[in-house]
């Protein structure tokens, strides 16, 4: 969820930093709602870099005859031209009363000077980062229901995230819809009535399941990956790197430290730990058999076979079988 450094939405300057559209919109909506609550006649101006020429800002923030409250929203502030930034910076240091300026900035290196100036002048900052981790999305869904004042089971959250995928707007819509349509606790059965299936499945998930010997789940996930249109060479690549990692670690000295191994094999340390878990049940010959199966599947998805899906399934089954050969 958006983290707030200062909770007053009517701070003279607010910067919303990040690339998650939904959170940026919410940051703007928060400010606008607060401003309207304070003064129903608040004037809201939305500006983009191409409509904000040097001088426009000064014009907008100059005192009006009727002393009305104004909210000025600048989208894509990182794309502002250098001349405009020269205009905006002094204003940040000396904001005008009754005006609330909201800068939406993507973060990153582009237009960083403006961001730094805003931070230095003590603006209120709202973080709106893209959510990349599945756990973050789960937390988001839970928070959505909490905001709506509804109780929800964790299985229900998981099912919802599985079925909808990583688009935060879609997730928020689904949460709102469920909260509006259903009475009582939202549990798995309720979610399953409206949302089924799996919106996203990657080759790496298939590989992780296969190398731990869970053939059924791996096949199911593979079918989902094919159904959502994952590119087939990507799946064979994931399978190959899964098996390869096991092959590399299997012959590493037993007592070696995780950090050293990570450096040697070029993998992050958490990956080393995970591969160590997956390694149980594997033998050296198993790695050989599995890698050759993946190589065959790779040839098949690149045109050597009429049915690449079958070739992939065969490779997954072989991997899952040799994963339990010990």
């Amino acid at each position: 969820m958006a983290k707030k450094t200062s909770d007053d939405p009517l701070a003279p300057v607010t910067i919303a930093v990040g690339q998650e559209g939904l959170l940026l919109d919410r940051a703007v909506a928060d400010v606008v709602t607060a401003a309207r609550a304070a003064d129903a006649d608040t004037d809201v101006r939305e500006l983009t870099p191409d409509t904000l020429a040097p001088g426009t800002l000064a014009e907008l923030v100059s005192p009006s005859l009727f002393a009305e409250r104004k909210v000025v929203v600048v989208r894509d502030a990182q794309d502002l031209s250098a001349d405009t930034v020269k205009d905006v910076k002094p204003y940040l240091a000396a904001p005008v009363e009754g005006i609330t300026l909201v800068l939406l900035h993507a973060g990153g290196a582009k237009g960083k000077a403006l961001l730094d100036a805003a931070r230095k002048s003590g603006s209120r900052e709202v973080a709106c980062p893209k959510m990349t981790k599945p756990a973050d999305r789960l937390a988001f869904v839970r928070a959505e229901f909490r905001t709506a004042g509804r109780s929800v089971t964790s299985e229900a959250c998981q099912t919802l995230v599985d079925a909808i995928g990583s688009d935060l707007r879609e997730l928020a819509c689904a949460c709102a819809q469920l909260a509006a349509d259903v009475d009582g606790t939202i549990d798995e059965a309720v979610v399953a009535r409206y949302y089924t299936g799996r919106a996203e499945a990657t080759g790496f998930e298939v590989a992780d399941l296969a190398v731990t010997g869970r053939a059924t789940e791996a096949l199911e996930r593979l079918r989902w990956a094919l159904a959502v249109g994952q590119p087939l060479p990507g799946i064979t690549f994931a399978l190959a790197s899964g098996v390869r990692a096991i092959g590399k670690l299997a012959t590493a000295p037993r007592g070696a430290r995780t950090g050293d191994l990570a450096r040697e094999f070029g993998m992050p340390p958490w990956k080393i730990d995970r591969v160590r878990q997956q390694m149980r049940g594997w033998t050296g010959d198993g790695v050989a058999v599995a890698l050759r199966a993946v190589a065959e599947a790779d040839a098949a998805v690149k045109g050597a076979s009429a049915d690449p899906a079958y070739a992939l399934e065969k490779a997954v089954v072989i991997i899952a079988r040799v994963a339990q050969s010990r």
Binding site: F237, D298, G303, A304
Partner: peptide
Amino acid sequence: ASNVAPLLAVEA
């Protein structure tokens, strides 16, 4: 020649 990922083919 049939475009299998080089590393994978050589590993096999």
